[in-house]
Amino acid sequence: MSIDSLIILIYVLVLASYLGFELIAKVPPTLHTPLMSGSNAISGITIVGALLACNELGYTTVSKWMGMIALVLATINVVGGYAVTDRMLKMFKK
């Protein structure tokens, strides 16, 4: 990886973190539990890495098996996280 692409990634990291702080500070305490399980689902974005790892080379390599393990775990995180968040938010009524 070149230094240039590293710098771009760090830019993205810093700006996204700042944006995250701004946005999340405004979430009302009532919604903190759904926020946490929802952001938990977002952290399942590792699924992208898992999918790419599954694509590597032959079937027998450690890389591929690790990718498949990661894929199952990340999918649980994503699907379960969004589903339970939706289940909770459905209950919030006025």
Binding site: A16, G20, F21, I24, A25, L35, M36, S39, N40, I45
Partner: peptide, 15 residues
């Protein structure tokens, strides 16, 4: 991955 991860990281730290 970086954007999504940073959002979650920030959320966790604020909470």
């Amino acid at each position: 991955l970086i954007v999504a991860g940073a959002l979650v990281g920030a959320s966790g730290i604020i909470l």
